[in-house]
């Protein structure tokens, strides 16, 4: 799995795919969708699809693919290598969403939450396989949020395909297990070889699991706070854990779309009855519109 494109620029998203096996153009195919790294406060989230002809599902099953969470790292690597050997009938594709993309989506003026981002990414990958000419007839997805709603949305988007969205699909369907292995292998590799955009002094690469409740991960976050910039882009700023560390250990920042209540405390109630001081005449509109103020203090 060659992630060098991601290593060149990991500020956005990066799609990677295997060549499409010739047989997948002709024969009806089953396609599985799964993700890795949804929960961690560090590193990318990886979405993966894996597909093969419906007639060859037994051969995929024979590889003994299983839910990636039940496998050790070396078992996952071994299984991914086996899938690569079977490239005459098994294909895959990945979408790596950088932590910066996740932060900026979730913290946008118009919030783009992780569920919507996940759903759109999954649908994008199915579309990508179809665009590459894979004859997709069945799609199996491990659910994010409510399976019924998610299934309905995907079914609407892909009316000609039989869509199944289920919790624990990664344990139930071999194509989803295979997708979960691709996703997890990619996520682990991306985290291990993460190219920090920033120049960091005494960078500690012992992040722990990356999950917010891991004391090692929390300690890593605290150690790498920068008072003005916050964290390196490797951190998902939109995570509660990251935000609360910044609130305590970094300088405050107000944005033009921060709510007014956040910026000013409530006024005194007496201000409605008495004018406390003569109001200074506001500056001319010319100055207001240009953000110009007289410099009276240094």
């Amino acid at each position: 799995m060659d992630l060098s494109e991601l290593e060149r620029d990991n500020t956005g998203r990066c799609r990677l795919s295997s060549p499409v096996p010739a047989v997948c153009h002709k024969e009806p195919c089953a396609l599985g969708v799964d993700e890795a790294g949804r929960g961690p406060v560090l590193g990318p989230m990886v979405y993966a699809i894996c597909y093969c002809p419906v007639s060859r599902l037994d051969a995929l099953k024979a590889l003994k693919v299983a839910d990636s969470k039940t496998l050790s790292e070396s078992e996952r690597d071994r299984l991914f290598a086996k899938m690569e050997e079977d490239r005459d009938f098994v294909g895959w594709a990945l979408d790596v969403l950088s932590p910066n993309l996740i932060s900026t989506s979730m913290l946008g003026r118009v919030k783009y939450n992780l569920n919507s981002l996940s759903h759109d990414t999954a649908a994008g990958l199915v579309q990508h396989a179809m665009d590459q000419g894979v004859n997709v007839t069945q799609v199996f997805v491990d659910t994010v949020g409510m399976p019924e709603k998610y299934q309905e949305r995907l079914q609407q988007r892909f009316p000609g395909i039989e869509v199944t969205v289920k919790a624990k699909a990664d344990a139930l369907y071999p194509v989803v297990s295979a997708a979960s292995i691709c996703a997890k292998v990619a996520r682990d590799k991306a985290v291990k070889n993460w190219q920090f955009v920033e120049t960091l002094q005494d960078l500690d690469t012992d992040y722990g699991s990356g999950y917010p409740n891991d004391p090692k991960t929390k300690a890593w976050l605290r150690k790498h706070v920068e008072p003005v910039f916050g964290f390196p882009q490797f951190v998902r700023f939109s995570w509660r854990t990251a935000q609360s560390i910044l609130e305590k250990e970094a300088e405050g920042v107000t944005w033009e779309d921060s709510s007014i209540e956040d910026q000013e405390g409530p006024g005194r109630i007496t201000s409605y009855f008495f004018s406390e001081a003569p109001r200074p005449r506001p500056p001319h509109r010319y100055f207001l519109e240009r953000g110009l103020e007289p410099a009276t203090i240094l």
């Binding site: 120049t199 920068e226 390196p232 882009q233 700023f237």
Partner: peptide, 26 residues
């Protein structure tokens, strides 16, 4: 602030202008 270490290397030239992020915002 360590602008040269944190901010400058994160600036990307896009087709329609520059892009960077600060505190997780674009």
């Amino acid at each position: 602030a360590p602008v040269e270490r944190f901010f400058t290397p994160a600036i990307r030239q896009r087709a329609d202008g520059l892009e960077v992020s600060f505190r997780g915002r674009t």
